[in-house]
Write a protein that binds this DNA or RNA. Structure first.
Lengths: 210, 210
DNA sequence: TAGATTGTTAATCGATTAACAATC
DNA sequence: TAGATTGTTAATCGATTAACAATC
């Protein structure tokens, strides 16, 4: 185990490792070598061994890796066992889509509450999660320490909402608004999901060819 | 203009350039230097000039870049002016959220049709887009050449649906299912939006600190 | 003109790949 | 044991940064 600073390239591959190992486990595969895993993930065996060595020694010479145990190690590295909690800000279509379809528990999260300003949605329950008025947020975060705030509000509301979350002590923000939140100063981590950037990348790739 | 092969790192920054230039234009800024743009985007001036030089010479010594014209150049590089079309497969919560809230036109796309198997949604119109039965897809694609298929179906349906899209001649797939589509053989480009990967990355980053 | 800023070449830094001794 | 495969060190490759002549 030689920690130091793990590069962002490695970190972004960890969830993919976890996903592929989950699939292997579900398929009943017990052991996997770096070369076999590499083949199915389109990575070199070398890279996989190099990546894993950032966190420890999980394999065995001549054998490879035990699928279940490697999956468990990576889950721990990802913090999936920490009982993280989340609240969602903005219960529009996207917010509701996440609440109804996204399996927070499969990522080790508990979605504990939702907040909105619309009277027509406040007070309702969506997938067992209660929708509160936004004005309750400050008090809520004071009483319920929360790991992550999910921003599914309109772009214009992104910055003030982010500030409320930071003031309330969240550690991270999952940002679905189409704006770059630059919060490096606050110590809060931001993960952006930019649909438009993703579609434009695809647009470039399909336009390139012709 | 020295084309060659543009690296994926550069390509993924292009939509961000576009987004920031759009903001600058909206704010009435007429010109911007690589160092000013770099400051606001957290990139070095050098990197910006290096990136842009993959596609041409858009600046002027002593002046910098004209915001409007650079924005236009990048839009063209991204293929935003190609009249790309899209169809969406799966009109569940996420599909509907995209249809109702995502501005396809702002990325240069026209969302032309939606397909689902649920009788309760077939025949309806959502944001002016007609929902057809999935069984019509093959015929539709034959009659309406389509740039991109959007996969918002359940994970289990991902691969067969992708195959239908490829058979129908789409150039790219925007994949929201939680599976890695490995279609390198087909010549069709896949852009994945993996919510779980994104949240797990955030989980790692907030877990790391303590 | 003088100052500013580009596009590009060279230098540096970091990430991926290859090689191999250690060992299950 | 012999074969397989790890973890790690060294080599290569690619991307970022620095430097600077060209020039608006």
């Amino acid at each position: 185990m030689k920690k130091e600073k793990v590069s962002s390239a490695v970190i972004r591959r960890l969830p993919r490792y976890y996903r592929h190992l989950t699939d292997l486990a579900k398929a009943g595969v017990v052991r996997v070598s770096s070369s076999a895993l590499g083949e199915s993930m389109n990575l070199t065996a070398s890279q996989i061994r190099q990546d894993l060595s950032c966190f420890g020694e999980f394999g065995q010479q001549g054998y490879g890796y035990n699928v279940e145990s490697l999956k468990g190690e990576i889950a721990a590295i990802l913090g999936m066992d920490r009982g993280h909690t989340a609240v969602i800000l903005g219960v529009g279509n996207l917010g509701r889509a996440l609440m109804e379809n996204f399996h927070f528990d499969r990522s080790g999260f508990h979605l504990a509450a939702a907040f909105d300003i619309s009277p027509s949605i406040i007070g309702r329950q969506i997938s067992d999660v209660q929708v509160y008025p936004l004005s309750d947020l400050e008090q809520y975060l004071k009483e319920n320490p929360t790991s992550v705030g999910i921003l599914t509000v309109p772009r214009a509301a992104a910055i003030p909402m982010a500030e409320k979350l930071i003031a309330g002590g969240v550690k991270g923000i999952w940002n679905f608004t189409n704006s770059d939140l630059n919060l490096s100063a606050s110590g809060v981590v931001v993960e952006n999901v930019h649909f438009a950037d993703s579609l434009l990348t695809l647009s470039y790739l399909i336009s390139e060819e012709s």
